[in-house]
Design a protein around this nucleic acid. Structure first.
Lengths: 199, 199
DNA sequence: GTCTATACACCGATAGAC
DNA sequence: GTCTATCGGTGTATAGAC
């Protein structure tokens, strides 16, 4: 059941995302957020105890949604390199479709790193679980096995997506980004080997 | 020639780096910076027109120094994978030696992305030139050639170091980071092939 | 040149009318 | 519950004494 106050909280979180995306976290004052949401300042403090409470919810809720957006529903490709390429291309498309939002995610992660380090850690632990499951599924689907520990490969994948996000946000070079995604897929695929008949 | 006002500017920039490293960019108010530098507030505005002017200098000067710190003087290793592993391990050591500073660099880059995008672009263009030169040298030194365009490999290397920085800052998992560095070096090395006799 | 004192805008948060 | 009005605090920047 959705009580009015929860609806208000949701509206404020959404407004906050828009403000952070458009003008950065440092511009996301309570006043700017309520203006974006079309509310009065007092309504904010009726829904939230404090600005910190909203930021907590913003980080956990918005970063959690991000997971689903990044993970494609169905990957195409017969070889492991093709599968990885499809997955990374999907992420690159997601990034290019809404760069401001992804930049906001980065700012929120960095803010969490200082203000709520345990939230950032939890988030990345969750990313790691998701990447691990995806890589294991990809290997199984192509009858391969990883020659490095799967958590290592998962972390490498996460590091790479973080890196490509930052570099693309800086120079917006689509052609170079696609070229890098292709090279990264090929390089990552080299960390797996075909299953032997015994396996 | 170093006039007094330039010395004051330098002292303020150094104080600002310390404040950003310790407490984040959002805490780096002019008051916090002059307190760290042991100056009065008015002295700040004698040396700088505005806080923005200091941030401009901070970004260009501090990010420029970063280049040299990241690039190791001499790499050891006979194979390309060993060379890449040594280089990446050097960067990881650099990160672990002063994580607060590296976190400050990330915050400054992200700030520049919003406030002075051209500065961020210039900075990454410079990173690319340095990474390109390093990769070409490494390939030449091990009698290899890159099977992908060198700018692509360079961008992959930069993306990866950006990513490893963020992920390590989040969870500080040394063992996993080392494992990932090893895997990344192996993966990157797969993008090169030995020179043939004709070459 | 360097200081103290202060102007003025904006911040998060709250009081109190309705 | 929702508003306007306002509190106390901090931000950047400046005026003016020395």
């Amino acid at each position: 059941m959705r009580t009015p106050v929860d609806a208000r909280r949701a509206a404020l979180v959404e407004a906050a995302v828009r403000v952070v995306s458009a003008r950065g976290l440092s511009a996301a004052s309570t006043r700017a957020i309520v203006a974006e949401a079309g509310m009065s300042l007092a309504s904010f403090h009726y829904a939230f105890e404090s600005r910190d409470e909203l930021l907590d919810l913003l980080i956990t809720e918005v970063l959690a949604k991000e997971e689903k957006a990044v993970l494609p529903e169905q990957l195409e490709g017969r070889t492991l390199a093709e599968l990885l390429h499809a997955g990374l291309t999907g992420y690159l498309d997601h990034l290019r479709a809404d760069p401001a939002r992804e930049q906001a995610m980065l700012e929120l992660t960095q803010f969490a790193l200082r203000a709520r380090p345990e939230l950032a850690r939890d988030q990345y632990a969750q990313y790691t679980r998701i990447a691990t499951a995806a890589l294991e599924m990809a290997a199984h689907h192509t009858r391969s096995r990883w020659t490095v520990p799967v958590p290592t490969a998962a972390r490498l994948l996460i590091s790479f997506t973080d890196g490509i996000t930052l570099t693309w946000l800086v120079d917006r070079d689509d052609a170079l980004a696609e070229s890098v995604v292709t090279a990264a897929a090929a390089a990552l695929a080299q960390l797996a080997a075909p299953l032997t008949d015994a396996e």
